[in-house]
Design a protein around this nucleic acid. Structure first.
Lengths: 167, 167
DNA sequence: ACCTGAACACCGTTCAAGT
DNA sequence: ACCTGAACACCGTTCAAGT
């Protein structure tokens, strides 16, 4: 059985957070994580259940930090939209782990996902369907930008202006 | 040197297309591909350069088939938007391989990417920046839908209606 | 209580060797 | 001309064994 309370567990969480931000999702391997803690990969399993536990923890941190950043932003829709873009570009790997792989709903704190969703509904001030469309617009913009799908000479500041105007 | 002309190469392309659609991007391994052709994985390298050649080929097919589907749709913005969603949901793995991993621009036919981009600009009838925002909206919607980010009880038909109204 | 080596079933890729 | 076995450097995970 994994010891789910020990201080080692906290060090694993901290190391996985660093490793994700430094090397990205593809660099977050159990062996690389163990190396960083100067132990061998099998030893990790005495403290955590499996890799999904690490992923779920990082998804939870991502949602939480993202929520804080959006709340902190000025209350205009434009300020909120730019905060969305700003946070995602500053934390691309954390953003990726929350949206590009399945969200491990059973293993993140209850209400965390709804908290972020409700935040977007509050901002738009309209119904759920409209809020979802606005969220998709923000997400699509940062996803395509991070993936390098826009041409190098694209004026993305202007694209975001047009996007905010569409809301 | 890889034999880049042989009939075997065409059979590899066909098999990789089937394998992607059946098992998804994670199931598209060189060993699984070789199994399907009743050869061993190392033999693939006598016909193709590397796995990226297969991925580039599938990205090219994805962009091409997607373009055809959008062109075929009725010419209203609503019809085009629904065609976008319809094609992506009918070909989720082909959609994923063109947008969720880096586009291998050096290895797909020149102009293919621009062709699809121009298609979206034609539809919106406005400038590049506006077209990019519209594209991001469509992409964000299907990406979040395929990833299962919307709640099960979400009315996505209505969400798309709101999205089309925003354009 | 904590960590390890060896193992299993995977992955992309190389290369000398066989027909 | 075409295919293969063995190998290399990876991956997540299990388990008996060591301290």
């Amino acid at each position: 059985m994994a010891n789910t309370d020990g201080p080692t567990r906290e060090r694993i969480r901290a190391a996985s957070y660093e490793l994700l931000n430094e090397k990205g999702l593809a660099g977050l391997s159990m062996r690389a994580l163990a190396d960083r803690l100067h132990i061998k990969a099998p030893s990790l399993y005495k403290h955590i259940e499996d890799k999904d536990e690490i992923i779920a923890d990082l998804q939870a941190r991502g949602l939480q930090e993202f929520g804080i950043a959006i709340r902190r932003a000025g209350k205009s829709r434009r300020a909120k939209a730019l905060a969305y873009r700003g946070w995602a570009l500053a934390n691309p790997h954390l953003y990726e782990i929350t949206v590009s792989i399945p969200l491990l709903r059973d293993r993140i704190p209850a209400g965390l996902e709804d908290g972020v969703t409700n935040l977007i509904i509050e901002i738009t001030g309209k119904d759920h369907e409209h809020a979802r469309a606005v969220w998709a617009l923000m997400h699509g913009l940062v996803d395509l930008e991070i993936a390098g799908r826009f041409p190098k000479d694209a004026d993305l500041d202007l694209t975001w202006k047009r996007a905010v105007a569409m809301i």
